[in-house]
C-alpha cells in the first residue's frame, strides 16, 4: 500500500495547491473586516503543509515511530489478507449507487429502490432471482410506507406521482 499512500498524499497536495490558488483570488479584506478569502487562505496553507509532511513521511526512509499496528484505527480490516479481497464488489456497489441516484428522479423512489435492492442482494451473495425480487419488493414497500407516507420524506415519486399524488 506504500505506493497508494504516496499517490494519495500527492493528490491531496495538488488539491491543496489548487485550493490555495483559488483562495488567494478571493477578497481577503483586512484583519478588522476579514473577507471571504482570509480563512481559506490559512486553511490552504495548513492543508499544503500537512500533505507535504505526509508525502515526505511516506517517501523518506523512516525509523520505527509510533505507527505500530495498535495505532491504526481499524486494525482488523487491514490485517485481513489482501489476496482474499474481492475488489470487484466495491466497483459493482459504487456503480449500483450511481445508477440509483441517476434514475431516482425519473423512475421515482419505489421502482429505483426495488431494482437497487435486487441487485444489491445479489452482490452480497444471494443468487436466486425470484426470492430476491420478493424480498426487494417487500423492503421497498415497507420503506415507502414508513418514509414517504408516515415520515413525509418528499422522495421523488417519478412516474408514480400521478397515481399516488
Amino acid at each position: 500500500m506504500k505506493l497508494g499512500s504516496v499517490v494519495f498524499a500527492g493528490l491531496i497536495l495538488a488539491v491543496g495547491l489548487v485550493y490555495e490558488i483559488m483562495a488567494l483570488n478571493m477578497p481577503r479584506g483586512r484583519l478588522s473586516y476579514p473577507g471571504p478569502g482570509l480563512f481559506p487562505m490559512i486553511i490552504g496553507l495548513f492543508l499544503i503543509a500537512t500533505a507535504l509532511g505526509c508525502l515526505l513521511q511516506e517517501i523518506l526512509p523512516r525509523k520505527k515511530t509510533g505507527e505500530g499496528p495498535s495505532a491504526s484505527p481499524l486494525p482488523s480490516q487491514d490485517s485481513a489478507a489482501p489476496e482474499g479481497r474481492n475488489v470487484i464488489k466495491t466497483f459493482q456497489l459504487m456503480a449500483l449507487m450511481i445508477g440509483y441516484t441517476l434514475v431516482l428522479k425519473t423512475l421515482g423512489f419505489l421502482i429505483s429502490i426495488c431494482a437497487f435492492l435486487v441487485v444489491a442482494i445479489r452482490i452480497f451473495g444471494y443468487r436466486r432471482w425470484v426470492p430476491a425480487l420478493a424480498m426487494a419488493a417487500v423492503i421497498a414497500g415497507i420503506s415507502y410506507v414508513s418514509f414517504v407516507l408516515w415520515l413525509k420524506v418528499p422522495l421523488p415519486l417519478g412516474i408514480f406521482e400521478e397515481i399516488l399524488g
Binding site: 486553511i43 509532511g53 495505532a71
Partner: peptide, 17 residues
C-alpha cells in the same frame, strides 16, 4: 485516536477545507 499525527492533521485540514 492516537494514530499518526501528520495523517490526522491532514484529515483535519481536509475537513476544514
Amino acid at each position: 485516536t492516537g494514530g499518526n499525527l501528520l495523517k490526522s492533521l491532514m484529515m483535519i485540514a481536509l475537513g476544514l477545507a
